[in-house]
Every structure is written in structure tokens, then in C-alpha cells.
Design a protein around this nucleic acid. Structure first.
Lengths: 148, 148
DNA sequence: AAAATTGCTTGCAAATTGCAAGTAACAATG
DNA sequence: CATTGTTACTTGCAATTTGCAAGCAATTTT
């Protein structure tokens, strides 16, 4: 039942990124972790974009295979905890560039609600990413802090 | 025959980006334009990742609808020219972040062949992106210049 | 005028997705 | 300690999307 992995179409760096996390759902999982502090299957399932249960499961597995996420046991034994690895945390600058671009071009963007963060990204993405990586490592979400 | 557009799942900035360019093929088209100076349907078709003809056509249409690409007539009337709009050029910093991440985590990455560019991105993505945007506007590809 | 080239479209099989309905493992409750 | 609820999945299937091979119309080349 395992899917074929490591069968990259190419080692072009753009393609490598796309095959690692470049489908419609994977980055939404990472967004939920980084911005909203989500950690469990059930929490991801509640996202407004509406994951199908099987798709969510397959994407979590894919991200674990790619060493972007790691799974741990929750204190409540029924739940699993999904955490970003260092490799996953290193995607924060990239996700922030997406936020910046969308903030510029989507007139209805909810990025307006995190205008302070967007401004920090524009000024120095690396610097704010570093701070956010530390926050996420500590298990904190970032949205609340930067709400205007 | 037209697809339903502007039916966004949400205005979350991450989601907006994904719906604009976040499928397996769209960013490869942009890569071909930015790194390899490609401009026509036939040139895209030759990419090593192997576009299916209908998928390539549908993605070009999607990117035009999203105002990321614009189509113009080639001097050879059989061909069309696909160019990045300013909105499309603004994706360069994001694509460069993908390159940076893949250069770090793919041991076989072809990013090694553009090590100088990768180093410039690491030092100051905005600055080098600005330079590259001007190059691409002028219709030049960037790969050759930065080959070691 | 005939032959190539180019940018598509079409048809169809195969793969992927999305939804609804399970199920197994554990936790909480009476 | 038996029952009920939760949680994280899996399974079955219909609908959509993809990938490949074959067109085809509008040029351009010969």
C-alpha cells in the first residue's frame, strides 16, 4: 500500500521543493501549525478549506516521509502530535514570502489582520523568520501576537 | 468550457498563493521562464519533467487568468510568447526561497551548479531578486550568468 | 503548391480526489 | 468494569483530473 517515493522527476531545486511540499494541501498543514498552533489530526480537519480525511492522512504521511514533520504520542493516548522538524521549520521564510505576495495582490487578503507581521517580513524576512522558528519550536502559535 | 474561477476556498494568504500558482506544474513554467529564458509553448514542452500537452495549455491559461503571465504574438505568427507580468515577476523572491531550501536539503541538488546565485540569495534575497527581475524583464535568462 | 511546424483540442484509460461510512484503540463515565 | 464517546485513521465508490496518443487549423518554409 506504500507509495513509490524518492522517484523524483528531477533534481532541479524548484522541482525538488514542489515534490516535497508543493501540492494543494501540504502547505496548508504547515500554515495551521505555524500560524494557528495546531498539532493534531482533528485540529487540521477543522480548517476552513476542508480536508478530506484520507487526503489529510496521506499528506501527513508524505510530509513525515519527507522529514518535514515528525509524529509523536500525545499525553492523551488517542491523539498523535505532529511537529515540524528543523527541515520543516526552514520552510517558514518561504511561507512568509507567499504571505507577502498574497498581501500585495489579494485585495481581500486576511493578511490585513496581521499587518505588523507582514511589515516585519517585508523589512527582513530572515530575521523575523528566525524569531518565529523559535516560537514554533516552543510550541507557540504566532497569529495572536501579531494581530493588530 | 471555461473553468470556474475566483472561487477561492479562503482568503488566507497562504491559500491564495496556493490557488494562484500552487500546483505541480505552474511553478515549473515560471522556473523555465526565469532560469532558462523559455517563452513559447514548444519550449516549455521540452522540459525534462515532461508536461502533458493539455496540462501545459490549461496551466498557461490559468496563469494568464491569474495575471501572472501575459500572452503576446511572436514575430513567427505560429508561435505565442508568454511573458511574466509584474505580478509574476514578484514571485521571484519566493521561487528563490524554494531554491535555497532545496539547495540545503537535497544532497543531489542541481543548485550546486548555481552556487554563486544561491549564495547571493542567502545573503540578500531581495537585492538579487531585484536584479534578476530587471534581467527577466529584458528577456534574459539567468542560469548562464551564474554557472560556476 | 506541398510539406513542416506550432499551438493547441479531443478521446479515453488510469490515477487521484472527495465524500460517506466504517473500525480499532484508547479515554471518560456511571 | 461495562458502556459510551473520541480520535485517528481506512475503505468503498463516484466524480474529477491527469497523462498519453492522435488529431487539426493556422502559419511558415521549401
Amino acid at each position: 500500500m506504500k507509495k513509490e517515493r524518492n522517484r523524483l522527476r528531477s533534481h532541479c531545486p524548484v522541482n525538488f521543493g514542489l515534490e516535497s511540499f508543493g501540492d494543494r494541501w501540504s502547505l496548508l498543514i504547515l500554515r495551521d501549525i505555524i500560524f494557528r498552533g495546531k498539532r493534531t489530526y482533528g485540529e487540521f480537519l477543522k480548517s476552513e478549506e476542508g480536508f478530506a480525511t484520507n487526503i489529510l492522512a496521506s499528506r501527513l504521511e508524505h510530509l513525515i516521509d519527507a522529514c518535514i514533520l515528525q509524529r509523536e504520542v500525545h499525553e492523551d493516548g488517542r491523539k498523535d502530535v505532529y511537529l515540524l522538524t528543523e527541515k520543516g521549520l526552514d520552510l517558514i521564510p518561504l511561507i512568509f514570502e507567499i504571505v507577502l505576495w498574497s498581501a500585495k495582490y489579494d485585495s481581500k487578503s486576511e493578511a490585513k489582520r496581521i499587518a505588523r507581521l507582514v511589515e516585519l517580513i517585508r523589512k527582513d524576512n530572515r530575521k523575523i523568520s528566525q524569531k518565529v522558528m523559535e516560537k514554533v519550536r516552543r510550541g507557540e502559535a504566532i497569529v495572536t501576537e501579531y494581530l493588530d
